[in-house]
């Protein structure tokens, strides 16, 4: 009888302890969750909703269903700008993916070995990454300026006068040149990440292979490359997300309209002009359409991330 009494008295208290533990954890999570919900997740999801509305100014109130999407894909004025921006964004991304990441891998591979001056080079390669994108963009605009032409003076000096071009003034040149500027700045990121992956590979493995007579080239492709595949995946997806969202460097070097003649217009600059600043000359933002462009960018990013998750899962399962 006394035992029954005891357990009766204990039970509510036990629950209490359990609840209090839960409450403690919730309190630990609450500040982060609140800020994240209110200032990130909420606005992102509300953008999806907003893309179904239209109206000028700061509160689009008229519900139009999918009309914004239909307009974006069928009205020639919108469609032209939108597909131009998508294609340009893909080119911008592709230049980073190929040139930035393969150069980064090359640099990381060189920097992973031990030699005099290694720390200097490591520091140096990452230096531009710490600068503001805007500052880098403006700086290169001055350097590439055909009137001054620091670059063009050098080209003329070494006898390549025919290559002294108005780099940012030609429709077929501006976008690749801006992308290369961005590569110049960001190459430190993949380099550092590849370096972390490469230094994680055991020395013995490489030594054993080199005793067996494998060349440096073979060691790289047959041992190192397969081992850093997860890092390659992460770098690929980060490059994708960052560049499908690039804005600052275009704004600095080609303006909000991606000049000349929209040849450097990306999804982010189109989004900025449509939904935030408003197109010249009216300057009134079309927030519903802006949210539509944001939503489509969001869907493109999500599908990229899902593809990456699928392949990285499959690779992990195979191992």
């Amino acid at each position: 009888m006394s035992q029954a009494n005891l357990s009766k008295n204990q039970k509510p208290e036990l629950l209490n302890v359990e609840n209090r533990r839960k409450l403690t954890w919730v309190l630990f999570l609450l500040p982060a969750l609140l800020v994240y919900l209110v200032f990130m997740a909420g606005p992102l999801f509300d953008s999806l909703r907003l893309s179904l509305y239209t109206g000028k100014g700061y509160s689009p109130t008229e519900f139009v269903g999918l009309q914004n999407y239909i307009d974006l894909f069928t009205v020639p004025l919108w469609r032209e700008k939108f597909f131009n921006a998508i294609i340009n964004t893909c080119i911008f991304f592709a230049i980073h993916m190929t040139i930035q990441n393969s150069l980064g891998l090359l640099f990381a591979n060189l920097l992973a070995s031990d030699f005099k001056g290694r720390n200097f080079f490591r520091t140096l390669i990452f230096t531009p990454t710490t600068l503001s994108v805007l500052v880098v963009g403006f700086l290169w605009t001055l350097i590439l300026n055909p009137n001054w032409g620091a670059v063009n003076q050098i080209l003329t000096g070494v006898g390549l006068k025919q290559f002294a071009l108005p780099w940012l003034g030609r429709e077929n040149l501006a976008l690749p040149v801006i992308a290369l500027t961005s590569v110049w700045q960001w190459i430190g990121m993949p380099t550092v990440m590849f370096l972390a992956g490469l230094t994680g590979i055991s020395e013995e493995l490489i030594e054993a292979a080199s005793i067996d007579g494998a060349s440096e080239w073979e060691i790289f492709w047959k041992i190192k490359f397969p081992l850093i595949q997860p890092v390659i995946g992460i770098i690929a997806i980060l490059t994708f997300v960052d560049n499908f969202n690039a804005f600052d460097v275009i704004y600095a070097m080609a303006g909000a309209k991606g000049e000349p003649a929209y040849s450097a217009d990306l999804l982010a600059t189109l989004f900025y002009r449509t939904g935030i600043a408003g197109e010249h000359p009216t300057g009134i933002p079309n927030m519903g359409m802006g949210a539509t462009i944001a939503t489509i960018t969001f869907l493109i990013l999500m599908s990229g991330v899902l593809v990456w998750l699928y392949f990285s899962r499959r690779n992990a399962d195979e191992k």
Binding site: G42, L44, D46, F247, F271, I276, A291, A294, T297, L301
Partner: peptide, 22 residues
């Protein structure tokens, strides 16, 4: 939920953030 934000740039929610800030 938190780490999903690694892949989704906050800038895409700018229009709503602007309305919130105002």
């Amino acid at each position: 939920f938190f780490i999903a934000g690694l892949m989704i740039p906050i800038r895409l929610g700018t229009i709503d953030l602007m309305r919130l800030i105002i």
